[in-house]
Design a binder for these strands. Structure first.
Lengths: 239, 239
DNA sequence: ATTCGTCTGTGCGGTATCGAACGCATTGCT
DNA sequence: AGCAATGCGTTCGATACCGCACAGACGAAT
């Protein structure tokens, strides 16, 4: 089910030479579910390039409500804002999918940004994608019903876990979507009754990916399109 | 009411030498209400540094609903993502407050970014602020009621128009907040009955700024704090 | 085997907002 | 002066979601 030797797509974009040097400054780490990689206000010590793992960035509002503002897997990285010269986080970074990642010290990453023009360009483009997807998510949270948002979120999670089956509870989903747990249960029940998903005690399986995409709002497809358009070729006039 | 000789705060951050050279590449323009400066998918031709004017960035969802994702006045600029090497917009840029702005060609701006380290740093920090405020807005749209959001929005507009009195209709506010016009009317009526604002046919006046801040959600103050923390001194280790 | 904690399902009343429709006042145009 | 357009206010029923509460079902630990 789970593909082997998953790599990081940002690193894949780099020329072999730049990638090798970057990886030379990285160490492989195994991230565990629930691990906190950063808290708001902290100085950012390390950056992460997930390969098998993925990380939720969660915003807390009024110290009670919460909402996920980004989901970072092997298509991205944690700590990209360092490229903007700011070394603090505004949000919580929580490991949602356990697995491997490359870790590099913030200082080394900044130094690498200075040495590799290709790296800078990729990170810049990735930041742009993140902004675009954040805009999309803002609209999604405002206009789309829980069931559509849940479907979108499950698809995003499946993509980043490289599997149609993964672990996540209704409680956790509620936390990420900024709704009540009961709201998730209702939406999940609806999706299940349509045979799009199956689940039991935190073990979720996507049964019909195509139709689940249909049940999700267009934001899922829009996110994918944005990523492909900005981060994949064709390269135009340089950075 | 309206202060004279309003400048742009990003430009103000630059050393005099860099600012002068940048302004040398700019021309002053007078932006009119409703003018469209950019549409999604277009190639970005010019960047703008508003001084007296301000511009709404509006996201369209499903070609029907709409939502403002940023409000750019003399505290910011339009076209900052060029610094990320991407020259297209995802959103609509509509002039909401008429007035002056400095305009510069996208090409020249990119060239200036290469020549002025101070400029690059300021733009980078501004981008970070925009991301943070976007995250805040995403949460705001999800959790806060229309009345709070309206109060916040009026305060933001007042700040950028450098006046407690400005023109904006309920219809337009509804468009920006992503709610029905009737929803705005109800919220506005409530604020008026509390003597926080006064309005008639698109002519809005903030009567009690302090208490209006109290009526707004904390997102307004949070945005201001983020801006001051990131863009104002103290400068730390470099970009 | 029993207990306990976790995960999921259901039911109830309350509320913010929606969609649609209509009335009225002011402004601007001819 | 007359007329149309614009801006604002109100009402109606519908709906999505909320907060709270409780009940069953499964799994792990003692």
């Amino acid at each position: 089910m789970k593909r082997e030797s998953v790599t990081n797509r940002l690193l894949d974009e780099l020329p072999a030479r730049d990638r090798e040097r970057l990886l030379g400054g990285c160490e492989p780490v195994e991230l565990e579910f629930g691990e906190i990689l950063a808290e708001p206000g902290e100085i950012l010590r390390d950056v992460y390039f997930p390969t098998g793992s993925f990380v939720s960035l969660v915003l807390k509002v009024n110290n009670e409500a919460s909402l996920e503002v980004a989901l970072v897997g092997n298509e991205g990285m944690l700590g990209a804002p360092l490229a903007l010269g700011v070394n603090t986080k505004q949000v919580h970074a929580v490991v949602q999918g356990p697995g491997r990642a490359w870790r590099m010290s913030a200082a080394r990453f900044r130094s690498e940004l200075g040495s590799s023009r290709a790296l800078l360009q990729v990170i810049h483009r990735y930041l742009f994608v993140r902004v675009s997807q954040l805009e999309q998510t803002a609209g999604c949270n405002r206009f789309h019903v829980v069931e559509e948002r849940l479907a979108r979120y499950l698809l995003m999670t499946a993509d980043r876990s490289h599997s149609d089956r993964f672990r996540i509870t209704h409680e956790f989903l509620a936390y990420m979507l900024g709704v009540r747990r009961v709201g998730v249960t209702r939406a999940a029940t609806a999706l299940r009754s349509r045979k799009l998903i199956r689940y039991a005690r935190g073990d979720i399986t996507i049964l019909d990916r195509k139709r689940l995409i249909g049940a999700a709002c267009g934001c899922y497809r829009a996110d994918l399109a944005t990523y492909d358009r900005i981060l994949a070729p064709p390269r135009k006039s340089g950075d």
